[in-house]
Design a protein around this nucleic acid. Structure first.
Length: 534
RNA sequence: GCCCGAGUAGCUCAGGGGAUAGAGCAACUGCCUCCUAAGCAGUAGGUCGCAGGUUCGAUUCCUGCCUCGGGCGCCA
């Protein structure tokens, strides 16, 4: 609000100075360095050429014009560096922020409508139902679920889906591995040899069909693991059901009608190389079986009925899959821009100073469950969301366990617990928070107090950037910074101490409440608990 | 060879067309007679992989190269 009013004033001033078409590069931003004021504009730099003046000179004139505009809260203007205009505001503008935060509260503060009316279909994890979810898959769970929360707060309607590959050669091999173990035999060549296969084989009833039973067993495991991390799906879509419904055959017909399907070497191919893929892809193998691709195309085809934007979150090992899917969707007449693939880099786990290899086939698995039971769900989830999805992540289990008392999750949660403790102590001392309208906030001028308010003001920007860039870790960063601000405030600005002026005490109580709102929103978007005591 | 991603402090990583590049961990110094020290304050630590280009301005964008990770199946 403040920003847009400043930007408007800048535009107006520029026009008065003869800049007819203000370039879009003119921005009003929060400078990284607090010495550079509360807001800063690059207008003089960007428009210097068009105005045929040097940036400093244009800056001077712009500054004069802005001074005459007498914007609310503006306390001082200065020109600095190559020609930035730095704008310093009176604390009163931040006091308005505080009122806004606590009035709107956890439900309403920092919501955006950039996604209003847009349905987003989000598919993630979709691990093969042939074993427990390994620690790598947990990353997509945490990421996808948090992204859904972020999108939701921005007005989008996210729909979370898990695609179950419950047919095909891998599941068959898994079934054979289960029966082999049940009979005390070695698993077949290329089969699944993890310890869990033997354990599950012992649970399996004699009458059960090993493949069907195994898939159900694995899915149950995966669902529980994800739920432990507060990750839940709206829809579990079965590949098998899709085939049985005839949807796959119908999709194949449509592809044929599109004229990009041909038969070669007894297999049925899709000419994806026409649209940038490295080579054409097989839809139906020479033995008559579908490849993974064909039902998956049918699945994506179907998903267009359920979303305006279709997002897949894939591991880096599947990135080559994207061009062929995109080609197929174009052949089916879909708008390719509505299909988006987010490629996540791998997770490496370290234990005892060595990397732990992750592979279901060899049996070297660190399941998400194991991570959760060792680190706890909050630490696990926060660790996953600490870094950009583009970064190959290394989680050192020993480190996160050993440093449990000093890790960033607790740092943030501790801030929330301290806030609650203030409330409890206030009640014990009989101190009540007065109604907001009756409280004078003008005493909030300490740099620590103002820093916290500035950060709260930036929540919406952080949220929108997290949504636009599909980058939940921006929220992790934001919430850590807010916690840092709160901890500084906490040590430097006592709230309940007897020597604090009652007016100031009231104002600080509301500031604390504003922090609580900010932390609750941030942690909720990450899917991490906000504990009341630690 | 081709296609993705990454190269920023000793380590793990944020950041990103702007003004003196940040955080946590590790190291070193201080701070608990009133709200939880799982905290705070400070010191030290950097040719933002290399070379060109675009720009008033590049660590950020573009190109090339180097290094590392991943992929290049009638597996999924």
């Amino acid at each position: 609000m403040v920003r847009s009013s400043i930007l408007d004033a800048v535009h107006q001033a520029l026009e008065e100075l003869g800049v007819d078409h203000v370039p879009p590069g003119v921005t009003v931003e929060r400078p990284a360095n607090p010495d550079h004021g509360d807001w800063s504009t690059n207008a003089a730099l960007v428009c210097a050429k068009q105005a045929k003046k040097n940036p400093r000179q244009l800056g001077e004139e712009l500054m004069t014009a802005l001074e005459e505009a007498e914007l609310p809260h503006v306390e001082g203007l200065e020109i600095a560096g190559p020609g930035f205009i730095n704008i310093r505001l009176a604390p009163s503008w931040l006091h308005e922020t505080l009122r806004e935060v606590v009035t709107q509260g956890t439900e309403s503060y920092a919501r955006s409508d950039i996604g209003a009316g847009i349905d987003v279909n989000l598919e993630f994890v979709s691990s093969n139902p042939t074993g427990p979810l390994h620690a790598g898959g947990g990353r997509w769970g945490a990421f996808g679920d948090s992204l859904a929360r972020i999108l939701h707060r921005c007005g989008y309607q996210p729909h979370k889906e898990f695609y179950i590959n419950d047919r095909g050669s891998q599941t068959a091999l898994f079934g054979l591995s289960l029966s082999a173990r049940k009979g005390g035999k070695e698993v077949p060549e290329g089969g699944y040899r993890g310890d869990y296969v033997t354990e599950w084989a012992m649970e399996m009833p004699d009458t059960a069909d090993p493949t069907t039973w195994g898939i159900g067993r694995a899915l149950q495991e995966v669902e529980e693991s994800l739920a432990a991390m507060h990750v839940r799906f709206d829809t579990w879509s079965s590949e098998k059901a899709l085939v049985e419904s005839g949807a796959v055959e119908r999709t194949l017909e449509q592809l044929r009608d599109s004229g990009h399907v041909y038969v070669k070497d007894n297999a049925t191919w899709l000419a994806t190389s026409e649209l940038g893929d490295d080579k054409d892809r097989v839809l139906i193998k020479a033995d008559g079986e579908y490849t993974y691709l064909l039902p998956d195309i049918a699945y994506h085809h179907d998903k267009y009925n359920r979303g305006d934007i279709i997002i897949d979150i894939l591991g880096a090992d599947h990135h080559g899959y994207v061009p062929r899917m995109r080609a197929a969707l174009i052949f089916l007449g879909h708008e390719p821009n509505e299909y988006e693939a987010i490629i996540g880099q791998n997770v490496k786990l370290m234990r005892g100073g060595e990397e732990v290899k992750l592979s279901k086939r060899t049996g070297d698995i660190i399941a998400v469950d194991e991570l959760i039971s060792e680190l706890g769900p909050d630490v696990t989830r926060f660790a996953y969301l600490l870094q950009s999805i583009d970064t190959t992540q290394t989680i050192d289990i020993d480190l996160w366990k050993a440093q449990a008392s000093e890790n960033p999750v607790f740092y943030v949660q501790y801030a929330h617990a301290r806030i609650h403790a203030i409330g409890v102590e206030a009640a014990r001392r009989g101190i009540e928070r007065h109604r907001l309208e009756q409280v004078d906030l003008s005493g909030l001028v300490d740099p620590n107090e103002l820093a916290v308010l500035r950060h709260l003001l930036e929540l919406e920007d952080a949220l929108v950037s997290a949504a636009r860039d599909r980058a939940p870790h921006r929220m992790t960063t934001w919430v850590r910074e807010l916690a840092a601000g709160f901890h500084s405030f906490y040590t430097h600005c006592p709230v309940l101490r007897s020597d604090v002026d009652p007016q100031l005490q009231q104002a600080r109580l509301w500031l604390v409440e504003a922090c609580r709102v900010g932390l609750s929103i941030g942690l909720d978007l990450l899917g991490v608990e906000a504990p009341e005591r630690m």
